[in-house]
Amino acid sequence: MRTDRRTFLTGLAALPLAMPALRRAHAATPIVAASLLGDDKPETLVWIHIRDRVERELPGRFAFNIVPNAALGGEKEVAEGIRLGSIQASLSTLSNLSTWVPGTQLFDLPFLFRDAAHLNASLAGACGQELGEKLATEGIAAPAFINYGARHLLAREPLLAPDDVKGKRIRVIQSPLHAQLWESFGAHPIALPITETYNALSTGHVDAMDLTKSAYAGFRLYEVVPHVTLTGHIHAAGAVIFSGSFWSGLDEEARNVLQKAAIEGAGHFNTLMAADEDASVEVAGQGGAVFHDVADRAAWEAPARKVWESFADRVGGMEHIEAAAAAECRS
């Protein structure tokens, strides 16, 4: 009995030392990460990459619940969930965030960026830093930026010149800039969530839209809009975003680990996206898509660049825009 009593008392004495580990084992902080696309797309794969990176650094600290296929809503609904704290993490185009931070529209100006390297340099510089600070005031933490690829014109029939767009009903994201862009070509913009575009195009509610190659294939839109004009008019910038309330509630160690994982994940996403675009073109081509090169790029640029002047006051002025166009982005 004496031996049993000593064993029992020794166990009691060890409990205070064991309790912190027990608490850690049972205190995984949930992270609901929303993705608009499927398990095999970069929008979802990036969260698996971030989850695994965080788990290596902080085993058991977080429990990621990655929800694909827009099950938690479209971009606008997810961003609202991020701001409210009901969703902890997602990706978002900067266009989608312009509702709360109009300055994001700098990165949506048509024909502003020459290529992906030009865009990425601007996001990594002073303009990106300033943008992150403004998003934080709106309850959105954006520790890293991403590149979804260029947006191209998708239609039910070939639209090969600016005049071909006149009178067409074109789906746009819920952004005044995108609406004005297509109005400058004489089209009739109709704002719809991405999740409603397939039906809208198949029924003729809209005639055309613009989107990246990856999302074009991901949403199987080649089945209803088989013609792609390679305008590359907007390089679709985005961000890895977290709920501001969730982010501010983390301790410094956890926040630093998540931030590093997000930055690394953003680079991984950009690599995946470039490869996915190539694969998406092949998939869409096999599904009947026809890709058309732009014969006269200047003809497309002329009306679109009028949007620069219209939105200058909202994004820091024409000098700011011209600096970004010259790869000298500054706050």
Rank of each mutant, 00 (worst) to 15 (best):
K168W: 11
R305I: 05
R6G: 13
D4C: 06
S98N: 04
I263N: 08
S202R: 12
A289Q: 05
C127S: 13
A302G: 09
E223V: 02
S175H: 06
I82V: 12
H233T: 04
A254I: 14
A208L: 04
H118V: 02
M1G: 14
E133G: 05
S122K: 00
K260P: 07
D115V: 06
G149W: 00
T195R: 09
L119Q: 00
L17M: 13
H320S: 05
V67K: 03
P42Y: 03
F62K: 09
Y198S: 14
A126C: 15
I234L: 10
E282V: 11
A155P: 15
G128I: 10
L119N: 00
S310Y: 06
G244C: 00
D296M: 08
A116M: 01
P193W: 08
D52V: 05
H233F: 12
G288C: 14
A27P: 13
C329H: 13
E301R: 08
D278G: 11
G316I: 03
H233K: 07
A124G: 15
R6D: 14
R51D: 02
Q88I: 04
F107L: 10
V165S: 05
S90I: 03
A141R: 00
G285I: 13
V257T: 15
E277C: 03
A326N: 05
G186K: 06
A266G: 03
E309P: 09
V46P: 01
F111N: 06
A142I: 00
F62R: 11
M209Q: 11
A275T: 12
G265E: 02
R330W: 07
H178C: 07
Q259E: 14
G132L: 10
R255I: 15
P16N: 12
P20F: 03
I31M: 08
I146E: 01
M209V: 04
I190T: 14
W100G: 00
G60Q: 10
P176C: 08
L211N: 10
D163W: 06
I321A: 04
S280T: 12
E157D: 10
T212H: 01
Q88W: 04
R220Y: 06
A187T: 14
Q105G: 06
A261M: 04
A34H: 10
L258W: 04
A302Y: 07
V32K: 01
F113G: 07
S98L: 01
V225G: 09
D296P: 14
I146V: 07
E223D: 04
F145I: 00
T44Q: 09
N147P: 00
